[in-house]
Design a protein around this nucleic acid. Sequence first.
DNA 1: GAAATAGTGTCTTTTAGACACTATTCA
DNA 2: TGAATAGTGTCTAAAAGACACTATTTC
Lengths: 294, 294
Amino acid sequence: MPGTNATLAVSTVIFALRPSPPSSHRAPAPTIWVPLVRRQRQPFIDLLALPGGPLGDEDLAAAASRTLFETMRLAPKYLEQLYAFGDADRVFGSDPRVVSVVYWALVGNEEASSARLGDNVRWHPVDSLPPLAFDHRRIIDYALWRLRNKVEYSSIAHSFLGESFTLAQLREVYEAVLDRPLDAANFRRDMLASQSLAETGETLAGTRHRPPKLYRYLPQKDQSHDNNRFSAHDHHAHPDREAGRRELLSGTREVAVGVRPASSVLRAWGVNGRPAANSGAPAGAAAGGVPDGE
Amino acid sequence: MPGTNATLAVSTVIFALRPSPPSSHRAPAPTIWVPLVRRQRQPFIDLLALPGGPLGDEDLAAAASRTLFETMRLAPKYLEQLYAFGDADRVFGSDPRVVSVVYWALVGNEEASSARLGDNVRWHPVDSLPPLAFDHRRIIDYALWRLRNKVEYSSIAHSFLGESFTLAQLREVYEAVLDRPLDAANFRRDMLASQSLAETGETLAGTRHRPPKLYRYLPQKDQSHDNNRFSAHDHHAHPDREAGRRELLSGTREVAVGVRPASSVLRAWGVNGRPAANSGAPAGAAAGGVPDGE
DNA sequence: GAAATAGTGTCTTTTAGACACTATTCA
DNA sequence: TGAATAGTGTCTAAAAGACACTATTTC
């Protein structure tokens, strides 16, 4: 097997929910922001890019965490691999070629506010980004699409908030991410039925009306049935769909009176190959050997 | 930026549906098989491993296709990136470390049968695998999980079959992958309502009963709304969820009499992170520069 | 016409969504 | 006590699922 054949970089798309930019001086509905770094060198000097850096002697996810911490002292609550981008001509002119393993992350309110910024690192609202370096615009679009999908079938939304939050706040997160209003009554019922929230016993003061209860997120038991969480090292989530585990109990319908069954608040938006065959040289290894993965 | 820091390998989990092994001499219900390669060298010599090889001067998906073709003349109908595996100690003793970008693929009936096998390459039923090299067992389990999820919300099942197929055959695919029986009547209706099938006009002969109609898969229009299909180069699918695009037409219910609305035949099973902060050395680039991804 | 699967019709259950209404707090 | 949001109840619509039944072919 040959030696190294590519440079590996790790980048991260970090999402936070923050008030819309002052430009539109309307209701303070939050929108999605990402931190971007202004490049100091060629190629794409002076354009904005995702934070990241070369892979060190560490796990992939650790590289993502490390670069985020180094760049802006961020330690996101949620981190998941997005995709490995490695078209041969992705970063033209570089030799060896560059393959980027991209992660995406969510950070909560105050965490986002406490991020260390600077002349070259700033938050930008995703709905009005300037031209970006490399293929980073497309990567962000893809991460956004994943975010919107995943918000619908999993319980990541709370990662945008602090330890405790009201149902209205949580609903605001969903509404911002999905970009549509949700029925407050149904939202409440469905969230509570999902067993993923617990009352803290506190209420939120400082409003000029009835104080809402505060909740905290209740990790689902044995969520990581098999996959999803992966290596013992890597505490991060997997890209896939959390499917509301199917209850196989048919028969016996016994639903407490007046109780709404759990459901998922949400519904989907949507999207969906044969590869380029390639002859090329015969198998790459020792005599008689069929190549395998490593 | 330093030079290369890792060796990149590409492997693929290839799924095919084939009759259960003769051991159980019962009904010929098909099960899922994968081709595995017996390793000819250390580490893990003589153990089975996923087909693959080092990344060449090509796109990632092209490397997957190339190695499959070289190894067994396979050119799968469906190919999608699964995950990048890159724990620092994943392949102990190798320097530089190895990062594997793993793809998963589906092949049809006769395609699978025509695969070139040999002493070192053979199909194995996934439900009874011997110990495998590296972390390949876990990778296969993860790919299987993804397959089962994706079959539920997208139209990949037909990739296990040939150009044309009967509804009963298609249902068999779903039943094999999901490992549960489906109601034939509802399945039929839901598939037809999904607009993803077209009659070929032919029927399947050779049965000893009423000959069933043959259908072919009808690619969905504008499936690739935004993401999913990615680079212009890479014709392969993305990992995410194809959400049955929500019909926003509320109001106006106008359903042709007796017509069942489209639906998705299926329901889910299920499964569902903060990163390890890391100080380490300061930002990796030129003076005053904040590192970005490449 | 019996066996066997193809294919249709129709009812029930479950889930999602709309929306009216009551409750509680603060200014 | 009115403004304002919290929180509950209840109905309707749509989707999923069960299952009885008819249709068509071969032997």
